[in-house]
Design a protein around this nucleic acid. Structure first.
Length: 674
DNA sequence: TGGGGTGATATTTTT
DNA sequence: TATCACCCCA
């Protein structure tokens, strides 16, 4: 971003008279506006840092914002400032106000895998529970929650038999996790909203505490998130939101770009400022983006412009089939990199669906091009991480049956399914959690004499550990805990080879490291429960970035690319039924697909290449593909269609020839470099 | 309890 | 076609 602010940016920073909506086009320096505004609020307007809350959607965005604010406000000037994701904000509220909804102070936070497990259990009891059905129900329940509907409301809104069953599952699921003294991710927003709605005095306290609210990526807010914002802002109406309706690509998971329009209704004195100067992309790229998005209906007219030169034309590359597309794009990147003396980190290959990465990975590996694939299994989905998290959760909250079940036999304690069933039956009868049930005398009526001591031993051990951790001795207790369960040995047994085992153990140690950081007696002294909840909310992106000192190309979905920028961008699979995606065509939801293409295009700084294949194998059979309609929507003047040359099926011979040439070229360049 | 064979099934994903 | 979940058998 420009160091000096342009006039609309300056206005957005200093405007505090009424609520403000900043319509920030792609690459218009919106993060700079938010961070400068925070500094302005503190330095010029006189807010204390603790009175300001800035909300983002991802940890990454929150982290970046924190870093940049710290640069503007060095020293302790920004101390106490609340810059966090919606979910972390919700967690903080919930932690302080949990009594209002009958949660105990040590509640667990279930991630989506955990909540899937709970839901599957619940559904098994009264309806089918095959993976698909549960997944669908989970999705629907999340949607209902994000729309602010409770089980009863969901039931009355249910449109068909399936949804009725899902609504019933929702009700039972809620009861179940409440019994576990747990909440899920969605609850982190839903519960605070509920508390605020039902307890005016609590809300008032928070309104007095947080006197200015800023929201980033506002077009991505869903119904409950907007409710939360409205509640917090209250009558004071000290609010700035930044958003771009053209970059709304998450409506399928409940985001409501319509919240932009509602803002004008809910805050009649709303001021709107547009940021239209783009600092990222060359002129032709911007023209392409503008031309494309002009085909969408708009709430607010907005036209990006740039002081940069036009740059290269947008290249459209037709390919014979998907294999050639991959080979061609990869070899073009290799030669372009040599020609322009760029590094691989300057390149990104973007696509609509994850599966599209496969052929490109193959081509990249063959050519020895290092790459990073974003969107693989996340750190928190790894078995060893889940295990350790479950241990910690159980230590923090003995009622967390979902954690109990995960670890009771990990590592092996020879407690089988039958025993657990008996234990569950007893616990149900006694209306207590599984761990508590293990301690009770009555249990011996239910469980065989052989397994009973095992359960007792385990429960006793957990209780002892749990007490130790509660006393504040978290870290040494965790180390002892890992030692007690011989976890490293277990991992080695479980892993294919030594290397895998080492890596998994390293993940465990990393998690412990994070715990260490969170338990440090710095600003807020966190207890175990707090540390564990916060850990589930953290993303591992930080780690990947740090690891990423290798010069590698980026491979990711268009969704994942949002918020990023690259000098050279390749968008592949520009075909009908891919982008726009088939289901979106069927549902008539072309506009969101167009926005997705728009997001992709506006990631590019200097060059943009769009490729498509005329034939493609799908589900075993070869089909003919149409170029995407979006290609035709680009202004002709800035687009250069390449010929289909080089596209015939390459013989083995010519392939070898090509590689020999490449090797030759490499040699030459290597010599030149010296 | 884990591995291999078989049959269904093919978006986007953060917290 | 390729993967993944599930089931059955050792």
């Amino acid at each position: 971003m420009a160091v000096k602010l342009n006039p609309p940016q300056r206005e957005a920073v200093s405007y505090v008279a009424t609520p403000l909506l900043v319509l920030a086009g792609a690459g218009s320096g919106k993060t700079g506006v938010i961070t400068h505004k925070i500094a302005h609020l503190i330095r010029e307007v006189g807010y204390k840092p603790t009175q300001i809350a800035a909300v983002t959607f991802t940890n990454k965005a929150a982290m970046e914002m924190r870093d940049r604010v710290r640069k503007i406000l060095p020293g302790g000037e920004s101390r106490g400032l609340q810059i966090s994701t919606f979910h972390t904000l919700g967690l903080n509220i919930l932690r302080k106000e949990l009594k209002a909804i009958g949660l105990k102070s040590n509640f667990s936070l279930l991630d989506s895998t955990d909540s899937f497990g709970v839901l599957a259990d619940v559904m098994r009891q009264f309806t089918g529970a095959d993976t698909d059905r549960v997944k669908q129900a989970q999705w629907q329940i999340s949607k209902w929650k994000n729309d602010g509907l409770d089980p009863a409301q969901a039931q009355s809104y249910a449109e068909d038999e399936i949804q009725l069953v899902q609504a019933e599952s929702y009700a039972r699921y809620e009861r179940q996790i409440h019994a576990y003294n747990a909440v899920d991710f969605d609850d982190l927003i839903v519960k605070p909203v509920k508390i605020f709605r039902e307890h005016a005095e609590v809300l008032e306290r928070w309104q007095n505490k947080l006197r200015y609210v800023l929201v980033d990526e506002y077009q991505d807010t869903n119904e409950v998130q907007y409710q939360l914002v409205k509640q917090l802002v209250g009558p004071r109406q000290a609010l700035t939101v930044v958003g771009d309706d053209d970059q709304s690509i998450y409506t399928w998971r409940g985001a409501r770009p319509d919240n932009l329009r509602k803002l004008g209704e809910d805050f009649p004195r709303l001021k709107v400022i547009k940021l239209e100067q783009n600092y990222r992309s060359a002129g032709n790229i911007l023209s392409a983006a503008n031309g494309l998005i002009a085909n969408n209906a708009h709430l607010f007219e907005k036209r990006l412009w740039s002081e940069m030169g036009p740059g290269d034309s947008i290249r459209v590359v037709p390919c014979r089939d998907e294999i050639h597309e991959a080979e061609r794009v990869v070899s073009e990147i290799i030669s372009h990199r040599y020609r322009t003396n760029s590094s691989y980190t300057d390149y990104a290959i973007l696509y609509r669906g994850n599966h599209q990465s496969r052929l490109f990975e193959k081509a990249l590996r063959e050519q020895r091009v290092p790459y990073v694939l974003s969107g693989g299994t996340s750190f928190f989905d790894r078995a060893e991480v889940k295990d350790l998290m479950a241990y910690l959760r159980l230590m923090a909250n003995v009622d967390d049956d979902s954690a109990f079940l995960r670890i009771i036999n990990t590592p092996r304690r020879e407690i089988g399914a039958q025993t657990l069933e008996q234990l569950g039956e007893y616990a149900k009868q006694r209306n207590c959690s599984l761990l508590v049930a293990c301690h009770e005398m009555g249990l011996q009526e239910f469980v065989s004499a052989r397994t009973l001591p095992r359960l007792r031993e385990f429960a006793l051990w957990v209780s002892r550990m749990s007490e130790r951790m509660a006393r504040g001795d978290v870290l040494s207790a965790v180390r002892d805990m890992l030692h007690d369960i011989d976890y490293q040995v277990w991992l080695t047994e479980q892993s294919k080879d030594e290397k895998a085992a080492e890596k998994r153990w390293a993940n465990v140690m990393e998690l412990v490291g994070w715990l260490e950081k969170l338990c440090e007696p710095t600003e807020q002294n966190k207890d175990l429960q707090d540390a564990v909840s916060h850990m589930s909310l953290m993303s591992i992106l930080e780690r990947q970035d740090a690891k990423e000192n290798e010069d590698s190309l980026s491979l990711m979905t268009l969704h994942a690319a949002k918020g990023l920028e690259f000098p050279h961008v390749f968008i592949i699979g520009m075909e009908e039924e891919i982008l726009p995606h088939r289901t979106s065509i069927d549902e008539g939801n072309i506009e969101e697909e167009r926005r997705l293409a728009y997001v992709g295009i506006t990631r590019a700084q200097r060059t943009l290449t769009l490729s498509f294949a005329s034939k493609r194998k799908r589900f075993g059979e070869t089909i003919t593909c149409e170029p995407s309609r979006f290609l035709e929507e680009l202004p002709e003047a800035v687009v250069k269609w390449e010929t289909a040359r080089n596209n015939g099926p390459r013989s083995e011979e010519s392939k070898q020839h090509g590689q020999a040439q490449l090797a030759h070229l490499r040699g030459l360049l290597g010599a030149l470099a010296k």
